Amino acid sequence: MSSPQVALVTGAASGLGRAVATALAARGAQVMCADVDEAGGQAVAEELGGTFVRCDVRSLEENRAAVAATEATYGGLDLLYANAGVSSGIGLGEEFDEERYRHVMGVNLDGVVFGIHAALPAFERRGGGAIVATASLAGLTAVPLDPLYAANKHAVVGLVRSLAAMKEQRGVRINAVCPGFSESKIIAPFREALVAQGLPIIPAEQVADTVLALFDGDMSGECWFVQAGRESQPFGFRNIPGPRA
């Protein structure tokens, strides 16, 4: 009988992170719940029979510590859901704030980069693994209302697609999930406006289903959209124009 999979989930205290942690635990995985929200993250971990570790994903050292805690607690690491994220709420006009900009880029981009970097040695010790990063439909299209969010989510998409070769080199698969407006803290400030416009809010559990499908499959370097009323599938990127003589 094979041992249960071990998963590290960032942003596990609420929203998509909580939904994925719950889905993983429901099928028998051992889950390390990481978040800056200590009370929320601890509550989720206790509910699921998992373990909580405080992790500010903007810090490389805290990402390394979260991976180390996972290995120390469960003996290894098989799955990483690099999920923690925030919206910016600012553009590049007079409202621009450098501190907010650094915070948003730190969570949404550095958090994915640092998380993957910290997890790779653990995957190598395990003989392979799988990563899913939370991007967004904002990583696949223009978002005039939050260009900085679009910028870091486009970066996550580019990172995931570029790291796909790890499957052959290190036995590690990496994919991205790109949801539309989903139940999470990110949409809380404008959720009512979305509903008033008739835009459906995607249940976090629907996103979790796609994340688990990405963990279970054999794909790598794919970016799967999640949209209300549609079946999730990989986004079809067009190839860039080739050179001409």
Rank of each mutant, 00 (worst) to 15 (best):
M1K: 00
M1C: 05
S2Q: 09
S3Y: 15
S3P: 13
P4L: 13
T10G: 13
T10K: 06
A12D: 08
A12S: 11
A13Q: 01
S14I: 07
G17F: 05
V20L: 00
A23W: 01
A25P: 08
A26D: 14
R27G: 05
G28E: 04
Q30L: 07
C33Y: 00
C33A: 12
C33D: 02
A34E: 02
V36S: 04
D37N: 09
D37Q: 01
G40E: 03
G40V: 08
V44E: 03
E46Y: 10
L48H: 08
L48V: 11
T51A: 12
D56C: 01
D56M: 07
V57A: 05
R58M: 06
R58P: 01
L60I: 11
E61W: 08
E62D: 14
A65Y: 10
A65M: 14
V67P: 04
T70D: 08
T70S: 10
E71W: 05
E71K: 11
L77P: 02
L79F: 02
L79W: 00
L80E: 02
Y81Q: 07
Y81L: 07
Y81V: 01
A82W: 02
A82S: 06
V86I: 12
S87A: 14
S88Q: 11
S88L: 15
G89F: 10
D97T: 08
E98Y: 11
E98W: 02
Y101I: 06
R102D: 13
H103K: 15
V104R: 05
N108A: 14
D110N: 15
G115V: 07
G115L: 10
G115F: 09
H117V: 13
H117E: 15
A118P: 07
L120Y: 03
L120V: 08
P121F: 06
A122E: 05
E124Y: 00
E124Q: 09
R125F: 05
R126T: 08
G129L: 02
G129F: 01
V132F: 01
A135L: 00
G139C: 08
T141K: 09
P144Q: 13
P147F: 11
Y149E: 15
A151E: 10
N152D: 15
V156T: 15
G158I: 14
L159Q: 14
L159G: 12
L159C: 10
V160H: 03
R161D: 15
L163G: 07
A164I: 11
A164S: 09
K167H: 12
K167Q: 14
V172M: 03
I174H: 06
V177M: 06
C178S: 05
G180W: 04
F181M: 02
S184G: 02
I186H: 07
P189W: 04
F190D: 05
F190Y: 13
E192T: 03
E192Q: 10
V195G: 00
A196Y: 03
Q197V: 02
L199N: 07
P200N: 02
I201L: 06
I202D: 01
A204S: 12
Q206Y: 03
Q206S: 07
D209W: 00
T210R: 06
V211N: 05
F215Q: 05
G217D: 12
G217V: 11
M219D: 11
G221Y: 00
A228R: 01
G229Y: 06
R230T: 03
E231L: 11
E231Q: 12
Q233T: 09
P234N: 02
F237N: 01
F237T: 09
N239H: 09
P243N: 10
P243W: 11
A245V: 13
A245Q: 14
